[in-house]
Nucleic acid binder design. Sequence first.
RNA 1: GGACGAUUAGCUCAGUUGGCUAGAGCAUCUCGUUUACACCGAGAGGGUCGUAGGUUCGAGUCCUACAUCGUCCACCA
Length: 820
Amino acid sequence: MSNQTHDSKLPKEYAPQDVESDIYKKWEESGYFNPDNLPGDRSDAFTISLPPPNATGTLHVGHAAMLAIEDILIRHARMQGRDTLWVPGTDHAAIATESVVIKKIQKEERIKDPRKELGREEVLKRIHRFVEESRATINDQVRAMGASIDWSREGYTMEPTLNRAVNEVFVKMYEDGLIYRGHRIVNWDPKLQTTVSDDEIEREEIKGKFYYLQYGPFVIATSRPETKFGDKYVVMHPDDPRYADYKHGDTFECEWINGPITATVIKDEAIDMELGTGVMTITPWHDHTDFEIAKRHNLDKEQIIDWEGKLMPIAGEFAGMPIIEAREKIIEKLQSKGLVTKIDEDYTHSVAKGDRSKGLLEPQIKEQWFIDVNKQVVNWKGKKMSLKEVMQDTVQSGDIAIVPDRFEKIYFNWIDNLHDWCISRQIWWGHQIPAYYRKRGNSKSQVTNNKQDDIYVGIEPPEGEEWIRDEDTLDTWFSSALWTWSTLIDKKLSEDKTLSLQDLLDKSPDFKRFHPTTVMETGYDILFFWVARMILMTTYATGQIPFKTVYLHGLVLDKHGKKMSKSKPETIIDPLEMIEEYGTDALRLALIVGTSPGNNQRLSKDKIAGYRNFINKIWNISRFAMMNIDKGAVIKVSKPQTLADKWILSRLNTLIAKTDTHLENYRLSQALESLYDFMWHEFADWYIEIAKREENKQDMLVHVLSTMLRLFHPFIPFVTEHIWKLLGNHVEFKNLFKNQLIVTPWPQVDHNAVNKETEKQFDEFKKVVIEIRNYKSSNAIKMKEQIEIHESTAKDLNDELADLAQSLTHVTFATDGQQV
RNA sequence: GGACGAUUAGCUCAGUUGGCUAGAGCAUCUCGUUUACACCGAGAGGGUCGUAGGUUCGAGUCCUACAUCGUCCACCA
């Protein structure tokens, strides 16, 4: 029974589950999420690109927080009459998705090595299908959060338009010499069989052994003896007095793991004299520092560990062994030769692990594609700058602001340490690199991507069958970095291959209308991965900044301040379960109140339940109003009659101004706390209590309530929309309810209504009432029908207020405020 | 090793450019079924704002040092 239109039968408790999905449907049908359909004249664009959730898994509570924050900003802007767009989309999440699907195939179909057994085409087909399914699931969950997203503009990092953008940027960078292919030391993940970028590394402190080995006349120290087979260079600082007798380039014979070798002395300033013995041997193939030293002195490099993480034939009897296993055995052998001088059993050092695979990474030399971050060829503000410099400039100049601003320091710190970005990945799922190779001359051997090949880089494949495309795909962040503008490119236009990238941008109406975007709201944990790279790629490709403000939220932790993790299901708060139990609005409040940008927050069911109670309070305030207002009444905003009226109007307008200021400065939590406090502790606790005792409150009640519904709407869209409709059915008021949905306008401050003197008077009155109640409470036991009131307490009140005070305290005292 | 945070009531946290007699929610205690709400109402207790200095008419807020916890970064052999 739909009894909710009969006010007398409005239930005492608000049941979000009964109304939320219908309300969302109405919103979608209204078309208001699409700025093209918004009423009014709108020119000032307000755009947010939704950070695309990964195509894997489901929505977690971190996503929920992100959606709540962005929806608040978006709804507020829309109600203010701005040209408001929120673009959604999905990220293909290359490595993450591919490994999830591979594992799924292995488990469900018992195919050991899907890549080998099914082939590239079939595997990609499966991944596509998987992504389609999980995209639909995620989008429904985004809807459940109430996000007022323009679904008609949904983007996807693997769609043709974005692929076009990716290829265009790649080619442009290649032609500018910003993308190059070269043998560099990369982070190799033996588990996933691909390179990963510096930012995809997790470092972990581990305890291990530290071995001191006799190497000819020197003692060298290492934690990785298994890399030492090929070491034939011994390096020391040129100024080290201990080794002054040895000259750069000196050679000597010495006994080593698998027999005698000839070693060469190298002097290099990278050596720390204080550390260990001040001497080390180098393994350029498997260590970043060593690689740099070898490069400086043009030394030989040799691979010791293969791509699976096993020792190569150079290791002799140890060949084929995994490194950990080999380590002990090598030491045993060295010990038998008397070459181990000392073993430090308790040595902490850090190791690199892949943040996806969690497996140990091995530095390897490999020919890969890189983006040069130091080459000064980027046009920016009339100068030639490097990508690094442009990234610095955007924030330094204030073009982009980061909230909270302390992250600007962290951002600069990251740029200072930034190396060339390795962008090629040896996986299938992703944007394939638009590079093609052709064997030079008439060699019959296979194309090997080496220097002897011709290279062609372009949007379209080159003519001729002998060209073979690079098998590798691009780092997923390469495409995500284009997100703010690639999603605004007109999809039809992008099919026209005759247009340049610049043409595409110039001719895409959405790009011109909505870019740069207004706010990028995302977690601080992907500041480097994504935010910085959007700045890098967007400034380069479009000449524009991607966004004006970066708002960073913190992590959502469990009740005990721990990260929620899949391995500990009891710590996980599932947003969908919370929505089911408490309603979306309550969850949204719990995710916003008490949080501040850049700081982690704790979430518990208790907190959500607390805000569920508040939602119900709003419901009952509205219920009271509707029970006390004649059905079908035509409401006008009449002049305030009593002190209480003037007071609530003054407070209401102060609140509107305060809410505006807070929201403009991204202080969402404080905006909400002011609203909460007014609604409950001023409107409900005082004004409504007085409204029960004073006459003619209909106009004022509708005015305050409808204003509050609008102020609250960005934060708690469902319950406010629901009440808005009920109220619209109940009374007529300034035509505000006729369009049924709360879209516009945002309440304006009536400065005339703000009166500090009135507020002060009312505060005095409140004080008296509280004092009486307090007195009554402390004398509860002796009290019967009446109570003695000190003259001083009530003497300031006029007759009218004295009556009111009596009524509010259920105390009778004599007229003139005299004691009884 | 470098950088950045946090430290405010029993718990979780706000506190905007220095003006605060330091706030909220939860928890605790007392009272209360007054026709919006027990997912409620009325009241109470509870903090020398990590420590030590400094700047200022005035500091939770700015500066310095220290302590504890946490996060990020780094090519320590």
